[in-house]
Design a binder for these strands. Structure first.
Lengths: 149, 149
DNA sequence: CTAATTTAGTTGTCGTGACTACTAAATTAG
DNA sequence: CTAATTTAGTAGTCACGACAACTAAATTAG
């Protein structure tokens, strides 16, 4: 066969690490969003709330930019999602007394309660999803960590 | 410290496989979209074109639903992205003669040309992105494949 | 001190990605 | 054969996620 006109060098998509990574992550994300959907949360909303909780425990006051840096989300998207979380009364945004451009983020009691429950849900989904690679978790996580720039 | 009121059991997000997977994939996707952006393509558009090319090589005529099944994309999204690709004259959609509900997909010459170039770009990005795990590719891909449902 | 630059946050656009709801055609069941 | 169901595709909604462009406040440089 004339391979000159072939677009690909006969590499099945299934042999492509990037494609596999993408497929797996989309499935994981879908599982998470479906599970969290029952409590009216998205994965991104959960992720920002969890990040805020963590940073809050570590550093006290947290601004939107600090949270965005921590969660590797851009500040524009972060701003919008936090506005949604504020509307749901899961967090509060108050003017930073020291820097009037910034806003300090605080979780409400309701927010902490929802986060606690969401965390259980997320953990349960993860346990099922990663069940088949559980015994290789260290290897798996190690490989992933090598890929984070 | 009183751990009863803690939301999490002191598990850093960095130790969570799902979180790592998500972060890595988002970075991979961003690299891909930036690289493909130079040729006015998105990763999803490339992915559907590549899938169409593959299926076409294997089976000849391809419908939207078949492509959606192959690429694990939902048919609604697939329909919209294919409409975009048709507008760009990278593919054609013609009525299936055997099933008047269905549309047969065909790549145009321009589409094949763009796909060829896009494939080079994608391959180059992948080579850089996965450079650090190249020697463990078999292990890495194996783990990912175990996670695909 | 004042001008230039940087930083924190918002608004709006585009392209997925999941989903509901719909049309029309094909298939299956009775 | 006809009714019920399934299938292929489209339209529209919501929520990211990347980005450009913007305001206003803080910081730095001269």
């Amino acid at each position: 066969m004339d391979t000159q006109n072939q677009v690909f060098s006969y590499i099945e998509p299934e042999e492509n690490s990037g494609y596999l990574l993408w497929q797996v992550t989309m499935q994981w994300q879908l599982s998470m969003n479906r599970a969290l959907g029952k409590m009216e949360l998205t994965l991104t909303q959960f992720s920002l709330m969890a990040g805020l909780y963590w940073l809050g425990e570590k550093k006290g006051a947290v601004t939107q930019q600090q949270l965005a840096d921590y969660a590797n989300t851009d500040k524009m998207m972060t701003s919008k999602v936090l506005a949604v979380l504020e509307n749901k009364q899961l967090i509060e945004r108050v003017k930073d007394p020291g820097d009037s451009r910034a806003k300090q983020l605080k979780m409400t009691d309701k927010g902490i309660e929802v986060l606690r429950e969401a965390y259980r849900v997320v953990k349960a989904v993860d346990d099922v999803f990663f069940k088949d690679v559980m015994k290789d978790k260290v290897v798996f996580d190690g490989l992933l960590m090598r890929l984070i720039k």
